[in-house]
Design a protein around this nucleic acid. Sequence first.
DNA 1: ATTTTACTACGGAAAAAATACGGAGAATCG
DNA 2: CGATTCTCCGTATTTTTTCCGTAGTAAAAT
Lengths: 197, 197
Amino acid sequence: MALTKKQKEVLDFITGYVRENGYSPTQKEIQEHFGFKSLGSVQDYIKYLTTGGYLNNDSHSVRGLMPSAVQQNSEEIPLLGNIAAGIPIEAIENSDMISVPVHMLGKGSHYALKVKGESMKDDGILNGDIAIIKHQTQAENGQIVVAVVDNETTLKRYFKKSKQIELHPANEMMKPIIIKDKDCEIRGLMVGLIRTY
Amino acid sequence: MALTKKQKEVLDFITGYVRENGYSPTQKEIQEHFGFKSLGSVQDYIKYLTTGGYLNNDSHSVRGLMPSAVQQNSEEIPLLGNIAAGIPIEAIENSDMISVPVHMLGKGSHYALKVKGESMKDDGILNGDIAIIKHQTQAENGQIVVAVVDNETTLKRYFKKSKQIELHPANEMMKPIIIKDKDCEIRGLMVGLIRTY
DNA sequence: ATTTTACTACGGAAAAAATACGGAGAATCG
DNA sequence: CGATTCTCCGTATTTTTTCCGTAGTAAAAT
């Protein structure tokens, strides 16, 4: 559902107002800002915007408009533990939560892992970085995945060849892991990275 | 549950009072501050704010109001533009905002830049990454900074030597920039990185 | 223990804000 | 062109907010 120019103007006005004041404008304020002679006009825009999912309207509440965009910019996902060649993901026990910008997250469930080691350094993934992982069991060639091989969890680039699976590190010093299809279990796809200096 | 203008004013007054004095105002003080003729009015606001979760009221206790610290785990900072050797930061005009986990942000103001080019790739900073920058004009040796040299903005590691400033790229193919002290203007310190695959 | 001070609990009422509904001209699209 | 959507208007109605006053209860001070 696309927005018309005027509709976007109305939405932008509401969004800006919320950002500035911490509360939404009243319908009358919207009316006056755009010079409408009737509140019905404002009502119509609100209806379009809400049914389209751009706006949330807390019904019958004063200043109850909330642009979807301002609502949730980040989400909390669990930081499950460390990942490195040779060390399985630790238990979820005292799982910290970490805040992640939503634009990294698509559909599905996500978790985060702290990268240990330099095995992916040529892809700009360094020791200590937080990798954002989408939970899934399939992958395309070339994607960076969390894979379990031989009871060990590792972060590598995934390549499926005709008769084998190859897990490539991004480090000249290290060799790819080459294994049979069924010995490799994919636990997730890397969708983002967060680093703090 | 959204706040009306007046409700937010009352909440802000209470919050500010607590910040200044370490304890909350009495209801009568609130009444006088807003010029209400009845305590009932104050009561009403307290009720709205508490049921909405903005305020905690230790019932029947004097000065028992406590603004619930709205837990902010992410913050919006402006994405000012691109940064690359040779290209100045573009105008702030249509500055997008980007959501950043607060643990990256300390005190001070921050902004974000989109990295162009490979000049810092050996430090795991790749083309397309978002660099989170703290606005400051000083830096320690070895820190990654946004610096303006010769009207060009660039992201480099900063080293101050006895008689000169060196800006080191992290790329074997590129040489450090060596300049005089006064020809180098620091615009910010890199404090974090966000990458989306 | 009594008084004072601060907090609660209603009920009522005016004002402000949000909805419902019907209609109508302009723009867009097949 | 005809149908649909977008844009806008006007009025009537409902709901919420805001404020008041009075009476009662709990805590603190004397």
